[in-house]
Design a protein around this nucleic acid. Structure first.
Length: 579
RNA sequence: GCGCCCGUAGCUCAGCUGGAUAGAGCAACGCCCUUCUAAGGCGUGGGUCAUAGGUUCGAAUCCUAUCGGGCGCGCCA
């Protein structure tokens, strides 16, 4: 059910009846104020501008052609040509009836599924995952879950950094550790960050170590078996670490989704040869460069895009071009979505330009680089530990759970120790995720423990709490899982809740189109908030409530609980029955 | 120097296919628990939407300039 879509279609039909093109923008939006009804149609004003006619008159003609019988209880023209639509409670009840009998919660079937490749998380395996990886990982995962719920074919691609020059240093250090008899699991890589620091220190300070490291990079990349083996050991251990973080974070990435940089190695020579053959890449100052006139400065100097270093080495530009080829041609993607931080904007603009020219990206493949801002500390500077180091993601998540447990213990009344642990885990992790997901993707945001764990206002715990409240009522009602009844809307709080419940598809579509989970966060918060209002205003199980009203309110509660659970699941946030 | 992003209430943020009186949450203040979980609800106060122009019936939203902040720009990823 997509009310906005329905009203748009109805409006466009009316435009056609007036002799206007069918694609005239109906400009249907949710009403800004309650006295303006539920939805408003603003298209008449823009159309009148094109036709150079009186907007209010056109709105009147449009309204005369607009067939909303049974849907709207009132339509009226206001101001310069707004058409305000007040939906009929009976019609809303019917739509809810239909939606609630549906596993997709009223979301229409996806009649033309797309293949969508989503590149997200992509940690550097040389180091431990830190807070900088949080956004890509959870925003990407929320979009992936949304696309899958809608019914598209999603191919996750965890483009892990496993092939950089630091690996020479790391495997050289690992070799010495192993030679000294240190157990790999227990000591050497127990803390990737320490391991990296040790290796780096030797690289900087120790005689001969840097040279050995550089030699190892070359050997590794030319297929030396010994170096490859050490590298593989390191990579396996590092992946194990990221797996643990994903599990803790409740992220859907698995081993099968890993498509690291090294996976494209075999394609790189071919890409370079092809770029040369197509005369897109030319030699410049010893390197191989594609000059992009589309990105030239005002003097006409084209923007350089280096695809091969002096000496023949490849760069991430080369790998990303190969990834385009693989995703568009081999995976046959209709759309590629890449979640990285905003600083890589220029790079991906260049990648797309080159890939399109060279034919690595088919015209039919949309290429969406979805950037996001930086996580800042409360001082407004990039989020760091007190001593200025990077904050490990694993530690951040642990702290969230510890902090949540303190609050849960304080507030929870009759939960067992095990339940408290579980609730603390779901609340703590959920709070971190919601705080991030609810912000506009593109802007920097300030990470604040106090704000996210105060557990008041627009936070994950608020939504989880709303869910437990509904569930509590349903438990008390003592009804079967298969319980069903007629929706009958009378109170304003019921109607507001109903309209919001029917806006799920509208929200989902927008989340997928713009790759912006914050829209779903806003929606769920508003839904929970309207349920809270309804809960306060409309008694359900109390004495004196008519059976038809009680049953309808139970139906509203059931549907709300299902939607909250499903919506939070799309965000990767868990719910619980009690808290 | 060139380019990208950002500047909205004391704080954190929505809103940005141009639409009516710019919204939430936090913080402040005042109410509401013998009644379905008060991690809640209801209400009050709080704004030159950085600044100046422009486009138009209408601009936080589009365009231009300026100021302020962040980031990027040939061999890291």
């Amino acid at each position: 059910m997509n009310i906005k879509h329905l009203l748009t279609e109805k409006t466009q039909a009316a435009f056609v009846a007036l002799g206007l093109p069918a694609d005239t923008n109906a400009a249907v939006t949710v009403s800004t104020r309650v006295e303006f009804g539920d939805y408003q149609i603003n298209g008449a004003m823009a159309a009148a501008k094109l036709l150079k006619t009186n907007p209010r008159q056109l709105a009147e003609q449009l309204l005369a052609q607009l067939d909303l019988d049974g849907i709207a209880v009132k339509t009226e023209i206001a101001g310069p040509g707004f058409i305000n639509v007040t939906l009929a409670k009976g019609w809303l009840a019917q739509q809810l009836q239909h939606a609630s009998g549906n596993a997709r919660l009223g979301v229409a079937a996806n009649t033309s599924p797309q293949t969508v490749v989503v590149d997200y998380s992509a940690p550097n395996l040389a180091k431990e995952m830190h807070v900088g990886h949080l956004r890509s990982t959870i925003i990407g995962d929320a979009v992936v879950r949304s696309l899958e719920f809608w019914g598209d074919k999603v191919v996750r691609q965890n483009h892990m950094g496993d092939w950089g020059t630091q690996f020479g240093m790391l495997i050289a250090h690992l070799e010495d550790k192993l030679a000294a008899g240190v157990d790999l699991e227990q000591v050497a890589l127990a803390d990737l960050e320490d391991f990296y620091r040790e290796a780096k220190k030797r690289f900087d300070d120790e005689e001969g170590f840097a040279d050995k490291s550089r030699t190892y990079v070359v050997k590794l990349q030319s297929g030396d078996a010994h170096c490859q083996k050490l590298w593989q050991l390191f990579i396996d251990t590092s992946i194990k670490h990221s797996d643990e973080v994903y599990q803790k974070l409740n992220v859907t990435l698995t081993h099968a989704d890993i498509k690291p940089e090294s996976a494209y190695n075999d394609m790189l020579h071919g890409i370079i040869d092809d770029l040369k053959t197509q005369q897109l890449a030319v030699e410049s100052m010893g390197a191989l460069v594609v000059f992009l006139h589309e990105l030239a400065d005002k003097e006409g100097n084209p923007s350089p895009f280096i695809v091969q270093k002096t000496g023949g080495g490849f760069l991430y530009a080369t790998t990303d071009l190969a990834a385009c080829q693989y995703r568009s041609h081999t995976l046959n993607a209709d759309r590629v979505i890449i979640f990285t931080d905003a600083r890589q904007g220029l790079h991906f603009k260049q990648v797309e330009l080159v890939a399109r020219k060279a034919g690595y990206l088919r015209d039919a493949t949309a290429y969406d680089h979805c950037p996001f801002g930086t996580m800042m500390g409360e001082d407004g500077k990039p989020f760091k530990t007190r001593t200025g180091g990077t904050v490990k993601l694993a530690e951040l998540l642990e702290e969230a759970v510890v902090r949540a447990k303190a609050v849960v213990q304080d507030k929870a009344t009759d939960l067992s120790a095990e339940e408290i642990d579980e609730v603390a885990r779901k609340v703590g992790i959920g709070a971190v995720k919601f705080a991030d997901l609810s912000k506009n993707r593109t802007s920097d945001y300030i990470f604040s423990w106090d704000a996210m764990l105060s557990f008041e206002g627009a936070t994950a715990p608020y939504l989880q709490y709303a869910y437990t409240r509904v569930r509590s009522i349903l438990r008390r009602a003592d009804i079967a899982d298969s319980f069903t009844a007629e929706f009958a809307l009378t109170e304003e709080a019921e109607k507001q809740l109903a309209v919001k419940l029917l806006r799920f598809e509208e929200t989902l579509q927008q989340v997928m189109k713009d790759a912006q989970p914050n829209l779903l966060c806003n929606y769920l918060y508003e839904l929970a908030s309207l349920y809270m209002t309804f809960y306060e205003a409309c008694p359900i199980l109390k004495d004196g409530v008519e059976p038809t009203q009680r049953n309808s309110r139970l139906m509203l509660s059931i549907f709300t609980s299902r939607l909250l659970k499903q919506g939070l699941e799309l965000l990767g946030i868990e719910v619980m029955e009690r808290m």
